[in-house]
Design a protein around this nucleic acid. Sequence first.
DNA 1: CATTTTTGTTAAGGTTAGGTTAAACGTACA
DNA 2: TGTACGTTTAACCTAACCTTAACAAAAATG
Lengths: 236, 236
Amino acid sequence: METANKKILLVEDDPNFGIVLKDYLTMNDFDVVLAKNGMEGFEKFKKDNFDVCILDVMMPYKDGFTLAKEIREKNEHVPIVFLTAKTMKEDVLKGYKAGADDYLNKPFDSEVLLMKLKAILQRKASNGLADSKKFEFTIGGFQLNSKLRFLKYKDEEAIKLSPKENELLRLLALHENDLMPRELALTKIWRDDNYFTSRSMDVYIAKLRKYLKKDENVEILNIHGEGFRLVVKTEE
Amino acid sequence: METANKKILLVEDDPNFGIVLKDYLTMNDFDVVLAKNGMEGFEKFKKDNFDVCILDVMMPYKDGFTLAKEIREKNEHVPIVFLTAKTMKEDVLKGYKAGADDYLNKPFDSEVLLMKLKAILQRKASNGLADSKKFEFTIGGFQLNSKLRFLKYKDEEAIKLSPKENELLRLLALHENDLMPRELALTKIWRDDNYFTSRSMDVYIAKLRKYLKKDENVEILNIHGEGFRLVVKTEE
DNA sequence: CATTTTTGTTAAGGTTAGGTTAAACGTACA
DNA sequence: TGTACGTTTAACCTAACCTTAACAAAAATG
């Protein structure tokens, strides 16, 4: 499981409802930042990294849609959920156009909100869009702890990873089953993209392959000229 | 002509409702393929490329969630909208887990559905999934993943494609059943149009034909002096 | 129907990217 | 000053990729 709580930006102008909802979410292990209007919401958004934004539609100074558009300009992927007083078709369309991920009509069942949040976060996570804060990975029969830099296969003793081994495997894991471009690793880990750093990376790929050999369902494939792909075969 | 209608796969077991909804969507400039159950829906999905899938949740043989999972295995990105009879919390969560993009409760306002579809298509489009970023194709019994550069026939092991093979097949797929002008491939892929590049392209056409031989309903036809045409015969 | 042009196909050749191992290098630290 | 560790560089080899050549077949041309 993930250790760090997910961060939510909640923008709601009704102070009573805002505080109740904030407390409810906090009780359910979210870190909540509450803003009283669109203006304040945008300021707070810029100053932090949020996993989800929950925006009331009807607000003074800056309504939810306008705020959503501004947020989208800063961050293309952060999930946005709208809260609205009643179902108005125009609002629904407007919301989706502003880049909404979901929609809730007030009054709503708080449990439904919770489930939607969980589902959205899970979807984003599995889509690989998050996260610079992810340190623990399951790779087939392996457990990678990227903070403590070790790789453990089933019940065997953990293998210690060097910084480069660790970062490279972590990048691959973040892109599991997808392309991890050569250039990405070189710029992120080696901070330079030339012939020698590239060869160095190949050496590390070889090392990782050696470690991962223990599980035949895990392998690092090369996509010629593009990069590498960490594949985990899921047998039936 | 890039104004081709968007293609929808509609899977709905109630024949009356299915036909009415299909007609309504057709009237609104969508191309709709209707399937009566999950089984049939999956068959039809495999045989074509859709822009959106609308799935009823409650269906005989194969329910909407199972179908959604199967669709996700073939295509990671196609938007999926669920139709469900009533709001059941478990279903909402299950749906999002299966990779839903949206959710509608029956009975629903048909205009709302239209708007959601438009919004979803727009969102996908603005997220850069236009022509230039489309990389998953169904070609008869084949699945082409143009990002990861592989071609998979049914459940056989994926064939790796070289960059040129991949781009060429992708261009052909983008013009499925239509002319893909020689000159287009040469300028887009080879960046030069002369005798030698043209011969090189012919070599690649031969390679692709060899791969595609596995499915006798798929072939690359030559249009003398013009270009090539990727044809997928749909029997029945 | 002979000739030219275009396409189909296979194979050889050259070039570059990647796989792997080992030695060299650098730095921290005992 | 040496040893331990992480990293880079070198070296050698294989695999992947693309082009070119060569010849055959098909289609257009006059």
